[in-house]
Write a protein that binds this DNA or RNA. Structure first.
Length: 139
DNA sequence: GCCAACGTTGGC
DNA sequence: GCCAACGTTGGC
């Protein structure tokens, strides 16, 4: 099956890319939004996931891969929630800011711009490649 | 710090 | 089932 592409958001003050790299990956849990949860559930092993710093930085800083597909979120005491495991793949050489993304005609329609509150979102392959290009990064 | 956008809750 | 009130997220 073809790889899919995703973007996840995290406030670096809570959990940064450096934290993520420092522990060589983590459980992506705590998502409490149905749309975001459904996106987590649609992830397949080895899909690529862009790591975006929200609030502070507001830029795409790294690439992760899906190490383990969705399983019940152990941090959820009630409700039907999911987590995945992500692992760092490589950093973005030149982080791609939200401003750059908004000003790029090829990227102005991605969910990051259209729905700023969604924390786990799908990306089209062409958009994923475009972000990498803007970030001066090759897989 | 403000507020727009969005989701959830609960009264009716 | 509608919608007002409220809470949260995240850009500015």
């Amino acid at each position: 099956m073809a790889k899919k592409y995703w973007l996840v958001k995290q406030e670096p003050e809570a959990y940064s890319w450096d934290d993520f790299v420092g522990e060589n990956g983590c459980e992506w849990d705590g998502v409490r939004n149905y749309q975001a949860r459904n996106n987590l559930r649609a992830m397949s092993q080895d899909d690529f996931v862009l790591f975006y710093h929200s609030v502070i930085g507001k830029e795409v800083v790294g690439i992760a891969t899906v190490e383990r597909e969705a399983y019940p979120d152990p941090t959820a005491t009630k409700g039907d929630w999911s987590a995945v495991d992500l692992r760092p793949f490589k950093p973005i050489n030149r982080p791609v800011s939200l401003e750059t993304i908004k000003n790029d005609p090829q990227l102005s329609e991605i969910p990051l711009v259209r729905n700023s509150r969604l924390s786990v979102m799908p990306l089209e392959a062409k958009h994923f490649r475009r972000v990498l290009k803007l970030g001066n990064t090759i897989l």
